[in-house]
């Protein structure tokens, strides 16, 4: 496997929900143009850690983040950094498909519009088409761009959400269990899409399915009780784990 540049680097990250110490001393280096999977049992903190990378945890009052998180060597928790600007650079796809109650076109155009990415209407049309193509949903919706996004099927909605995230030209794409609400066919489509996206982005995906992690990712991080237990090449983690807890989890004895 070829080695890529480090895109995201974290050092001694701690997250507290009120008095609850949810993430303990997590240090990890995530590479560019790579799919990195976070696996671990429920409540182990993998989603929380994911939400630190685009500062989504700022919207939760009781949540405090300590430590050092850098994207392209820039500290994203620096007071000079605008979290709103950061989130345009670090796109996010959620567990449940959440299209806005707007047309398919307006859903995708939402980000480019608020960030002023398009020069004119024709430019915006191009951006929307490109995003929908990269979301692998263009052929299904090109004839009904003005139909409501909520009227699509679950799998289509999730791909629409991915297209929506891609439309703002992010550098990193965070995915929080993107397939947990989808059926196997839709899951396969989304997984194929993730593999495509790797060409342009650094993708971080949280998943409960170890098969999915093995299928789509090149690197895997195993979280347990708020600790990062093991991080390395996906093939190594699944065939020859170093830590006994990792082995217990992937063989189904804990979790």
């Amino acid at each position: 496997m070829d080695t890529n540049d480090v895109k995201i680097s974290t050092k001694d990250v701690q997250v507290y929900y009120g008095d609850n110490h949810a993430i303990k001393d997590v240090s990890v280096e995530i590479e560019d143009k790579t799919v990195t999977a976070f696996i671990g049992p429920s409540g182990c903190g993998k989603s929380t850690f994911l939400r630190c990378i685009n500062r989504m945890n700022d919207t939760i009052d009781v949540c405090r983040v300590k430590g050092d998180i850098r994207i392209d060597s820039e500290d994203i928790y620096d007071p000079k950094v605008d979290p709103v600007q950061l989130r345009a650079k670090v796109g996010m796809v959620f567990q449940k498909p959440n299209p806005f109650p707007k047309s398919i076109y307006d859903n995708v155009a939402y980000g480019p519009r608020i960030h002023g990415l398009a020069k004119n209407k024709a430019d915006l049309d191009d951006i929307v088409e490109n995003a929908l193509r990269r979301g692998a949903i263009w052929d299904e919706v090109k004839d009904r761009l003005q139909a409501p996004g909520t009227g699509l099927s679950g799998g289509q909605q999730q791909r629409l959400c991915i297209a929506r995230a891609v439309a703002t030209e992010p550098e990193v794409l965070l995915m929080d269990e993107p397939c947990s609400a989808l059926d196997p066919i839709a899951t396969a489509q989304v997984e194929e899409l993730i593999d495509e996206l790797r060409k342009n982005y650094s993708v971080v995906i949280v998943t409960h399915s170890m098969q999915q992690a093995a299928r789509v990712s090149q690197k895997t991080a195993f979280f347990h009780l708020g600790n990062l237990v093991e991080y390395g090449e996906t093939s190594t983690i699944f065939t020859n784990p170093v830590d006994p807890r990792t082995e217990s989890y992937i063989t189904g004895r804990i979790g």
Binding site: M56, L86, R87, F94, P99, I114
Partner: peptide
């Protein structure tokens, strides 16, 4: 989920309210 989706795309609070929550 609507709010998260909008914040996740880099919208501010009032943009989210105006363009997603109020509609």
């Amino acid at each position: 989920a609507m709010r998260d989706g909008s914040y996740g795309l880099g919208a501010t609070k009032s943009e989210t309210i105006r363009q997603v929550i109020l509609p």
